[in-house]
Amino acid sequence: MTLAEAILLTITTAATPLLLAAIGELVVERSGVLNLGVEGMIVIGAVVAFAAAQLTGSAYLGALFGMAAGCLFSLLFAFLTLTLVANQVATGLALTILGLGLSGMIGESFVGQRGVQLDEIAIPFLSSIPLIGNLLFNQDLIFYVSIFSVFGVSWFLFKTRLGLQLRAIGDSHGSAHALGISVIKTRYLAVMFGGACAGLAGAQLSLVYTPQWVENMSAGRGWIALALVVFASWRPLRVLAGAYLFGAVTIGQLHAQALGFGIPSQFLSALPYLATIIVLVIISRNRRLTLMNTPASLGQSFVPDR
Protein backbone atom coordinates (compact mmCIF):
# COMPACT_ATOMS: atom_id res chain seq x y z
CA MET A 1 0.00 0.00 0.00
CA THR A 2 1.40 3.36 -0.91
CA LEU A 3 1.44 6.29 1.50
CA ALA A 4 -1.13 8.22 -0.53
CA GLU A 5 -3.38 5.19 -0.51
CA ALA A 6 -3.00 4.86 3.25
CA ILE A 7 -3.88 8.50 3.77
CA LEU A 8 -6.93 8.26 1.53
CA LEU A 9 -8.00 5.16 3.41
CA THR A 10 -7.86 6.96 6.76
CA ILE A 11 -9.83 9.83 5.25
CA THR A 12 -12.64 7.49 4.32
CA THR A 13 -12.60 6.08 7.86
CA ALA A 14 -12.83 9.58 9.34
CA ALA A 15 -15.52 10.66 6.89
CA THR A 16 -17.84 7.66 7.26
CA PRO A 17 -19.30 8.50 10.70
CA LEU A 18 -19.85 12.12 9.67
CA LEU A 19 -21.49 11.01 6.46
CA LEU A 20 -23.84 8.55 8.16
CA ALA A 21 -24.89 10.90 10.93
CA ALA A 22 -25.39 13.77 8.50
CA ILE A 23 -27.39 11.77 5.99
CA GLY A 24 -29.71 10.63 8.80
CA GLU A 25 -30.13 14.15 10.09
CA LEU A 26 -30.78 15.34 6.55
CA VAL A 27 -33.84 13.12 6.30
CA VAL A 28 -35.00 14.28 9.74
CA GLU A 29 -34.63 17.94 8.81
CA ARG A 30 -36.25 17.41 5.43
CA SER A 31 -39.32 16.27 7.37
CA GLY A 32 -39.23 19.57 9.26
CA VAL A 33 -37.73 18.34 12.53
CA LEU A 34 -34.50 19.74 13.96
CA ASN A 35 -32.90 17.08 16.14
CA LEU A 36 -29.88 18.56 17.91
CA GLY A 37 -29.35 15.29 19.74
CA VAL A 38 -27.13 13.75 17.05
CA GLU A 39 -24.09 13.89 19.33
CA GLY A 40 -25.98 12.01 22.04
CA MET A 41 -27.28 9.36 19.64
CA ILE A 42 -23.80 8.80 18.18
CA VAL A 43 -22.22 8.31 21.57
CA ILE A 44 -25.00 5.94 22.69
CA GLY A 45 -24.55 4.01 19.44
CA ALA A 46 -20.81 3.85 20.06
CA VAL A 47 -21.03 2.52 23.59
CA VAL A 48 -23.80 0.02 22.91
CA ALA A 49 -22.05 -1.26 19.79
CA PHE A 50 -18.82 -1.70 21.71
CA ALA A 51 -20.52 -3.41 24.65
CA ALA A 52 -22.53 -5.72 22.41
CA ALA A 53 -19.47 -6.61 20.37
CA GLN A 54 -17.49 -7.40 23.55
CA LEU A 55 -20.26 -9.51 25.03
CA THR A 56 -21.16 -11.45 21.90
CA GLY A 57 -17.73 -11.45 20.30
CA SER A 58 -19.23 -10.37 17.01
CA ALA A 59 -18.59 -6.92 15.60
CA TYR A 60 -21.54 -7.30 13.26
CA LEU A 61 -23.94 -7.87 16.14
CA GLY A 62 -22.29 -4.90 17.81
CA ALA A 63 -23.01 -2.67 14.85
CA LEU A 64 -26.59 -3.92 14.73
CA PHE A 65 -27.11 -3.20 18.41
CA GLY A 66 -25.51 0.23 18.08
CA MET A 67 -27.87 1.08 15.28
CA ALA A 68 -30.88 -0.17 17.25
CA ALA A 69 -29.77 1.77 20.32
CA GLY A 70 -29.51 5.02 18.35
CA CYS A 71 -32.95 4.38 16.92
CA LEU A 72 -34.51 3.65 20.33
CA PHE A 73 -32.79 6.65 21.87
CA SER A 74 -34.17 8.94 19.16
CA LEU A 75 -37.68 7.76 20.07
CA LEU A 76 -37.29 9.66 23.32
CA PHE A 77 -36.79 12.83 21.31
CA ALA A 78 -39.64 11.96 18.97
CA PHE A 79 -42.07 11.36 21.82
CA LEU A 80 -41.26 14.67 23.46
CA THR A 81 -41.21 16.86 20.40
CA LEU A 82 -43.85 15.18 18.26
CA THR A 83 -46.35 13.86 20.78
CA LEU A 84 -45.83 16.36 23.58
CA VAL A 85 -44.79 19.22 21.23
CA ALA A 86 -41.83 20.17 23.43
CA ASN A 87 -39.32 22.70 22.08
CA GLN A 88 -37.11 20.90 19.55
CA VAL A 89 -33.92 22.80 20.29
CA ALA A 90 -34.12 22.24 24.03
CA THR A 91 -35.13 18.58 23.65
CA GLY A 92 -32.27 17.94 21.26
CA LEU A 93 -29.85 19.38 23.78
CA ALA A 94 -31.42 17.20 26.46
CA LEU A 95 -30.85 14.15 24.28
CA THR A 96 -27.19 15.06 23.90
CA ILE A 97 -26.69 15.69 27.62
CA LEU A 98 -28.44 12.46 28.57
CA GLY A 99 -26.61 10.50 25.88
CA LEU A 100 -23.20 11.66 27.09
CA GLY A 101 -24.09 10.81 30.70
CA LEU A 102 -25.72 7.49 29.96
CA SER A 103 -22.92 6.34 27.68
CA GLY A 104 -20.36 7.17 30.34
CA MET A 105 -22.26 5.04 32.81
CA ILE A 106 -22.80 2.10 30.45
CA GLY A 107 -19.23 2.21 29.24
CA GLU A 108 -17.55 2.51 32.63
CA SER A 109 -16.63 -1.18 32.84
CA PHE A 110 -15.46 -1.29 29.21
CA VAL A 111 -12.85 1.47 29.46
CA GLY A 112 -9.42 0.22 28.44
CA GLN A 113 -10.62 -3.05 26.91
CA ARG A 114 -9.39 -4.06 23.51
CA GLY A 115 -12.27 -4.04 21.10
CA VAL A 116 -13.37 -6.29 18.28
CA GLN A 117 -12.73 -4.72 14.92
CA LEU A 118 -15.17 -4.94 12.08
CA ASP A 119 -13.30 -6.71 9.30
CA GLU A 120 -12.99 -5.66 5.70
CA ILE A 121 -15.00 -7.32 2.99
CA ALA A 122 -13.18 -7.44 -0.31
CA ILE A 123 -15.57 -7.35 -3.21
CA PRO A 124 -14.38 -9.86 -5.80
CA PHE A 125 -12.76 -8.44 -8.97
CA LEU A 126 -13.55 -4.81 -8.09
CA SER A 127 -11.15 -4.78 -5.15
CA SER A 128 -8.26 -5.68 -7.40
CA ILE A 129 -8.63 -2.59 -9.57
CA PRO A 130 -5.39 -0.62 -9.17
CA LEU A 131 -5.55 2.60 -7.13
CA ILE A 132 -9.24 2.74 -6.28
CA GLY A 133 -9.87 -0.96 -5.77
CA ASN A 134 -8.36 -1.21 -2.32
CA LEU A 135 -9.84 2.13 -1.34
CA LEU A 136 -13.43 1.64 -2.41
CA PHE A 137 -13.98 -2.09 -2.59
CA ASN A 138 -11.96 -3.48 0.29
CA GLN A 139 -13.66 -1.79 3.18
CA ASP A 140 -15.83 -2.65 6.14
CA LEU A 141 -19.58 -3.06 5.86
CA ILE A 142 -20.40 0.28 7.50
CA PHE A 143 -18.46 2.10 4.79
CA TYR A 144 -20.51 0.41 2.07
CA VAL A 145 -23.71 1.19 3.96
CA SER A 146 -22.71 4.85 4.28
CA ILE A 147 -22.12 5.23 0.55
CA PHE A 148 -25.26 3.31 -0.28
CA SER A 149 -27.28 5.48 2.13
CA VAL A 150 -26.37 8.62 0.19
CA PHE A 151 -27.77 7.28 -3.07
CA GLY A 152 -30.61 5.48 -1.34
CA VAL A 153 -31.74 8.61 0.46
CA SER A 154 -31.32 10.69 -2.66
CA TRP A 155 -33.48 8.27 -4.61
CA PHE A 156 -36.03 8.05 -1.81
CA LEU A 157 -36.38 11.81 -1.35
CA PHE A 158 -36.56 12.81 -4.98
CA LYS A 159 -37.89 9.77 -6.83
CA THR A 160 -40.52 8.19 -4.60
CA ARG A 161 -43.98 9.23 -3.56
CA LEU A 162 -43.15 8.80 0.14
CA GLY A 163 -40.11 11.00 -0.30
CA LEU A 164 -42.21 13.69 -1.89
CA GLN A 165 -44.65 13.46 1.01
CA LEU A 166 -41.81 13.75 3.50
CA ARG A 167 -40.50 16.87 1.78
CA ALA A 168 -44.00 18.32 1.64
CA ILE A 169 -44.35 17.85 5.38
CA GLY A 170 -41.03 19.59 5.91
CA ASP A 171 -42.01 22.53 3.78
CA SER A 172 -45.54 23.03 5.04
CA HIS A 173 -46.88 20.65 7.65
CA GLY A 174 -50.27 22.38 7.65
CA SER A 175 -50.86 21.82 3.94
CA ALA A 176 -49.52 18.27 4.09
CA HIS A 177 -51.91 17.50 6.93
CA ALA A 178 -54.80 19.00 4.96
CA LEU A 179 -53.92 16.69 2.06
CA GLY A 180 -54.33 13.73 4.37
CA ILE A 181 -50.65 12.92 4.83
CA SER A 182 -49.89 11.69 8.33
CA VAL A 183 -47.45 14.35 9.56
CA ILE A 184 -46.69 12.93 12.97
CA LYS A 185 -46.26 9.34 11.79
CA THR A 186 -43.92 10.33 8.96
CA ARG A 187 -41.89 12.49 11.31
CA TYR A 188 -41.62 9.66 13.82
CA LEU A 189 -40.22 7.41 11.10
CA ALA A 190 -37.82 10.12 9.91
CA VAL A 191 -36.50 10.73 13.43
CA MET A 192 -36.03 6.99 13.94
CA PHE A 193 -34.14 6.72 10.68
CA GLY A 194 -31.92 9.58 11.82
CA GLY A 195 -31.36 7.81 15.12
CA ALA A 196 -30.43 4.55 13.43
CA CYS A 197 -27.94 6.34 11.16
CA ALA A 198 -26.38 8.17 14.11
CA GLY A 199 -26.22 4.92 16.06
CA LEU A 200 -24.43 3.23 13.18
CA ALA A 201 -22.07 6.20 12.95
CA GLY A 202 -21.29 5.64 16.62
CA ALA A 203 -20.75 1.93 16.00
CA GLN A 204 -18.26 2.85 13.29
CA LEU A 205 -16.31 4.93 15.82
CA SER A 206 -16.02 2.17 18.41
CA LEU A 207 -15.66 -0.78 16.00
CA VAL A 208 -13.65 0.63 13.08
CA TYR A 209 -12.14 4.08 13.67
CA THR A 210 -10.68 3.32 17.09
CA PRO A 211 -11.85 -0.12 18.25
CA GLN A 212 -12.18 0.76 21.94
CA TRP A 213 -14.47 2.70 24.21
CA VAL A 214 -13.37 6.14 25.40
CA GLU A 215 -15.74 8.47 27.19
CA ASN A 216 -17.12 11.25 24.96
CA MET A 217 -15.48 9.56 21.98
CA SER A 218 -17.91 11.25 19.59
CA ALA A 219 -15.87 14.44 20.19
CA GLY A 220 -18.29 16.85 18.56
CA ARG A 221 -18.89 14.78 15.43
CA GLY A 222 -22.64 15.03 15.94
CA TRP A 223 -22.43 18.81 15.82
CA ILE A 224 -20.20 18.73 12.78
CA ALA A 225 -22.77 16.46 11.11
CA LEU A 226 -25.47 19.02 11.87
CA ALA A 227 -23.33 21.70 10.30
CA LEU A 228 -22.74 19.45 7.27
CA VAL A 229 -26.47 19.32 6.60
CA VAL A 230 -26.59 23.11 6.43
CA PHE A 231 -23.38 23.12 4.39
CA ALA A 232 -24.98 20.67 1.94
CA SER A 233 -28.10 22.84 1.73
CA TRP A 234 -30.12 19.68 2.53
CA ARG A 235 -28.91 17.68 -0.51
CA PRO A 236 -27.56 14.14 -0.06
CA LEU A 237 -24.80 14.29 -2.68
CA ARG A 238 -23.42 17.48 -1.23
CA VAL A 239 -23.39 15.81 2.20
CA LEU A 240 -21.13 13.18 0.67
CA ALA A 241 -18.75 15.87 -0.58
CA GLY A 242 -18.88 17.75 2.72
CA ALA A 243 -18.23 14.70 4.87
CA TYR A 244 -15.15 13.79 2.83
CA LEU A 245 -13.91 17.36 2.96
CA PHE A 246 -14.16 17.25 6.76
CA GLY A 247 -12.64 13.80 6.87
CA ALA A 248 -9.70 15.24 4.95
CA VAL A 249 -9.37 18.17 7.35
CA THR A 250 -9.42 15.83 10.35
CA ILE A 251 -6.80 13.50 8.89
CA GLY A 252 -4.77 16.38 7.53
CA GLN A 253 -4.44 17.93 10.96
CA LEU A 254 -3.49 14.57 12.47
CA HIS A 255 -0.67 14.17 9.94
CA ALA A 256 0.40 17.75 10.56
CA GLN A 257 0.57 16.97 14.28
CA ALA A 258 2.75 13.95 13.59
CA LEU A 259 5.07 15.97 11.40
CA GLY A 260 5.28 18.76 13.95
CA PHE A 261 5.79 21.94 11.89
CA GLY A 262 6.25 23.71 15.24
CA ILE A 263 2.54 24.42 15.47
CA PRO A 264 1.07 23.49 18.87
CA SER A 265 -1.01 20.35 18.53
CA GLN A 266 -3.99 22.02 20.21
CA PHE A 267 -4.22 24.56 17.38
CA LEU A 268 -4.27 21.76 14.84
CA SER A 269 -6.86 19.85 16.84
CA ALA A 270 -9.06 22.95 16.78
CA LEU A 271 -8.97 23.03 12.98
CA PRO A 272 -12.01 20.82 12.26
CA TYR A 273 -14.13 22.95 14.60
CA LEU A 274 -12.88 26.21 13.14
CA ALA A 275 -13.35 24.84 9.64
CA THR A 276 -16.96 24.06 10.54
CA ILE A 277 -17.58 27.65 11.58
CA ILE A 278 -15.87 29.04 8.48
CA VAL A 279 -17.82 26.76 6.17
CA LEU A 280 -21.09 27.68 7.88
CA VAL A 281 -20.31 31.36 7.47
CA ILE A 282 -19.53 30.97 3.79
CA ILE A 283 -22.70 28.99 3.10
CA SER A 284 -25.13 30.98 5.18
CA ARG A 285 -24.01 34.47 4.19
CA ASN A 286 -26.07 34.06 1.04
CA ARG A 287 -29.45 34.58 2.69
CA ARG A 288 -31.49 33.89 -0.41
CA LEU A 289 -29.82 30.57 -1.05
CA THR A 290 -30.34 29.44 2.56
CA LEU A 291 -33.94 30.58 2.58
CA MET A 292 -34.64 28.74 -0.64
CA ASN A 293 -33.23 25.44 0.60
CA THR A 294 -34.18 25.35 4.27
CA PRO A 295 -37.29 23.24 4.88
CA ALA A 296 -39.85 25.90 5.73
CA SER A 297 -41.34 24.14 8.75
CA LEU A 298 -37.94 23.26 10.22
CA GLY A 299 -38.03 23.30 14.00
CA GLN A 300 -41.71 24.15 14.31
CA SER A 301 -44.06 22.00 16.35
CA PHE A 302 -47.20 20.64 14.78
CA VAL A 303 -50.46 19.95 16.58
CA PRO A 304 -53.13 18.51 14.28
CA ASP A 305 -56.41 20.38 14.55
CA ARG A 306 -58.31 17.14 13.77
Binding site: L36, A227, A270, I277, V281, S284
Partner: peptide, 15 residues
Protein backbone atom coordinates in the same frame (compact mmCIF):
# COMPACT_ATOMS: atom_id res chain seq x y z
CA UNK B 1 -23.51 36.43 7.99
CA UNK B 2 -26.78 34.82 9.09
CA UNK B 3 -24.80 31.94 10.61
CA UNK B 4 -26.64 29.52 12.90
CA UNK B 5 -25.64 30.53 16.44
CA UNK B 6 -26.31 27.10 17.93
CA UNK B 7 -23.58 25.47 15.87
CA UNK B 8 -21.08 28.33 15.96
CA UNK B 9 -21.34 28.86 19.73
CA UNK B 10 -20.97 25.14 20.34
CA UNK B 11 -17.95 24.75 18.06
CA UNK B 12 -16.26 27.55 19.98
CA UNK B 13 -16.49 25.46 23.17
CA UNK B 14 -14.07 22.93 21.70
CA UNK B 15 -11.81 25.71 20.52
Amino acid sequence: FNTNEILSSLMLVYV
